Structures are given as C-alpha cells and as structure tokens.
Simulated scan of single mutants.
Amino acid sequence: MPPSELMPIGVFARRSGLTPSALRFYADSGLLRPAETDPVSGYRYYRPDQVARAVALRRLRAIGMPLTAVEAVLAADPEEASRLIDEHLAKVLGDAAAARRKAALLQSSLADGVPSRPIAALKGPVLADAVEQVLTATVREPGLPVLGGLRIEVTHEAVTLTATDRYRLSTRTLVPAEPATTVWAGTVDGDELRAAAAEIRRSPLVRIEATPHAIRLRRTAREDQEDQGDLHCGLLSEEFPDYRLMLASLGEATTRATVSKDVFLRALEDHPEERITLRLTDHGTHVMPPGDDHPETPLRATVTGRPLSVSFELTTLYPAVSTALGPDVMLDLRGPDQPATIRSADRGDLTTVAMPIKPEGPSA
C-alpha cells in the first residue's frame, strides 16, 4: 500500500479511540498488528480498514472482556460473536450479584455496632411492588445523582415513596403493617433499593431501620426459610426536589378521562411513533396518527370537561399507565402545556405526574 494511504499511529489512535500505548500493547499481543513498521525507526502505520477492528476491540475491552475472549469474538461470525458477548455479560452480572450478596453480609457484620432506629414495618411483597413502581420515574444523570434515588417519608400513619426524573414524578403512599413510632425522611440509592426488591418480596414483613448513612432492611423469614440477614441501602446526601410544592401548585383539571388500562396500553404499544398525541372530546379519546395516511385509534373512554389535544413522549406516558393500579386509568389534564396527573380510577395511593410536550406538525 502506498505510504500516503497509511496512517501513523497517532492519527490511527485518534480515529479508533485507543491510545498509542494501547495500540502498542495490542500489537505485541497479536490482536491488532500494524500494517507496516518502519525497519529503521520502528514507527508503526495502520490501514484505514483496520479502524473498525480497533473500535470493536476498544468496545469489547470497555465491557471488561479478557483478551482471550476478545480474540475469539473478533474472529467469529456475527451470530457467534453475539453469543460470546451474551456469555460474557451473564458472567459479569453473576459476579456482580455475588459481590453484592457478599457486600451485604459484610455490611451486616460491620453494622452490628452502628446505632439504628426503627422507622417503619411493611409487608414485603407490598413494599417490593411499590419500590418497583415508583422507581420507573428515576433517571441516571451524573450531575444529579438524587434523580436516581427514591425518597422515603415516614409519618405515624403512612409511608410515602417518591421519585422524579424532572419530566415525570411518581409517588405512592403505603399503610404500615404496624403503627410507626417516629417521623423520618431520607433519599435512598435507587439502584441498591431496586436490587433489594427481589429479596424483600419473599419476606412476609420487612422492618426498616435508619442509620446515619443507610437504611437497614430487616427481613422476617417464613417458617420454611432460613434467616438470610439484613439488607443495606445507602442514603444520598443531595437535597431531593421539593415535589410537594410542585404538587400544591397544580391547577384544577380542566379535562378528565377514564379509560381501560389494558386497552390504553395496547394502543400505546401499537403506536408507530415515539411521541403520542391524545385527542379528547365528548365522544371519547383518540390516539392521533403520526401523519394523514393513518387513521386515528379510538379508545372507549369517559371524558368530562373541555375538549383537548395533548402530546407526550412514549417513554414518559407508557410507564405512568403501566404502573397504575386497578383495571381503569384516570387522566386529569390541565392543558397541552401543563402537568397531567395519571392514577387509578378507584385507588389514589399511586399517582404519577407527567409533563406533556409540544406537538409536532402544522397544528403545533
């Protein structure tokens, strides 16, 4: 190949995202040899068609794949490569789960001397369901870790779980299995609580205790189970958004629709676009098509108030509907640019507030 078509190692490093030192390492290991090496200076040159292999190598190493497995993936056909990646991912997840279990046992042993105070007792399956429902409103955002957390607020009468990703807010109120003896509030790491949900679901009763930097979940085992120890979830130090002020500032609903949850979900699943526009009139609710070539999808619904068209991102609306309790969903709407409240038509202990978006097209 003419020298003009070869790339020096520095240029190839920028194209591939690998450092020159990494390229030298992969050349020595045989995974990515240079096309040519200057016999006098030892300088290395690469062909343009080697960039794709270098990028794939970088991505495989980024997911922690060892060199022997990387070599096998790069040499395999697409189907076999995909299988090998799945195999590696399963091992990584298994190792992480094992590490989490060992860390929980270590935390439990270290926490024996850490003072804690009881704050609430809840039925395990009820708490697990509520955690998974409310955590749909979290988001991983490096600059705002609190948006990945779940706010727990305990009074003598209730335990309230709340999460928000700024475009959606979900909150659920639970009745304690035993009267709470204290008032407490804290924001719990959402990832750790999500991982704990599978464990607490199998416990008839879970007692929540607070320590300075975490909550301790004490599980009561069934008669046929052995005691599996406590679970620990860290507390986040960042201030949680003042969601109560936002809820208090919501205006009265101008349009209300009640629709079957299953029917609504099917309509959202069949909608071909990422954005959903709902048209609500006295005659019911319609899911608007993305263009004039498709018919509207009618939904049998009870609508009261003013006619309204309102648009949502599918990723905002679908979780709010899917986690609603009961067979029917109620939408309280305040206008095309005002927050919408989505909840069960007959139960008010799980509520989601979702932000609409500006509709697309000439009518926008």
Rank of each mutant, 00 (worst) to 15 (best):
V159G: 14
G148V: 05
R140A: 15
P176G: 13
R166E: 10
P125F: 05
V154G: 10
E239C: 02
D165V: 06
E157I: 05
G229W: 01
D191H: 05
A185D: 14
E157H: 13
V183Q: 12
S170Q: 03
T220K: 09
G148I: 07
L235F: 02
L174R: 11
V126C: 00
V126H: 02
T171I: 07
W184M: 09
A158D: 10
S170H: 07
L174D: 09
W184Q: 10
G190Q: 11
V126D: 04
P212N: 08
R201K: 08
A180M: 04
G229C: 01
T160I: 09
E226M: 11
R202C: 12
V146D: 04
T136Q: 14
L247W: 07
L250R: 00
E178A: 15
L150Y: 00
T171R: 15
R202W: 06
I152C: 15
R194K: 08
P125M: 02
L217S: 10
A221I: 07
L247C: 09
R244E: 15
I208C: 15
E238N: 03
R216E: 13
T164R: 00
L161V: 07
S249Y: 00
V154Q: 08
P212T: 12
V131Y: 08
F240E: 13
T138S: 12
T182N: 14
Q133A: 13
A221H: 12
T138L: 08
T138A: 12
G149N: 08
P204N: 07
L161N: 05
C233V: 15
T164P: 09
P241I: 03
Q225Y: 03
D165M: 09
G124C: 03
E239F: 01
E223A: 14
E157T: 13
G186V: 04
A195G: 15
A197V: 06
V188Q: 14
D191Y: 00
G124K: 01
C233N: 08
L217G: 14
L169R: 01
R172P: 05
A158S: 10
A210C: 06
E141N: 14
V154L: 06
R201Y: 09
V206T: 13
I215Q: 05
L245Q: 07
S203Q: 03
T162F: 06
V188M: 13
V126M: 01
V175Y: 04
E157F: 11
G124D: 01
R219T: 13
Y167Q: 05
E223M: 05
P176D: 13
T155M: 10
L217F: 08
H156S: 07
E141L: 08
R151H: 12
L236T: 10
L147V: 12
T164G: 03
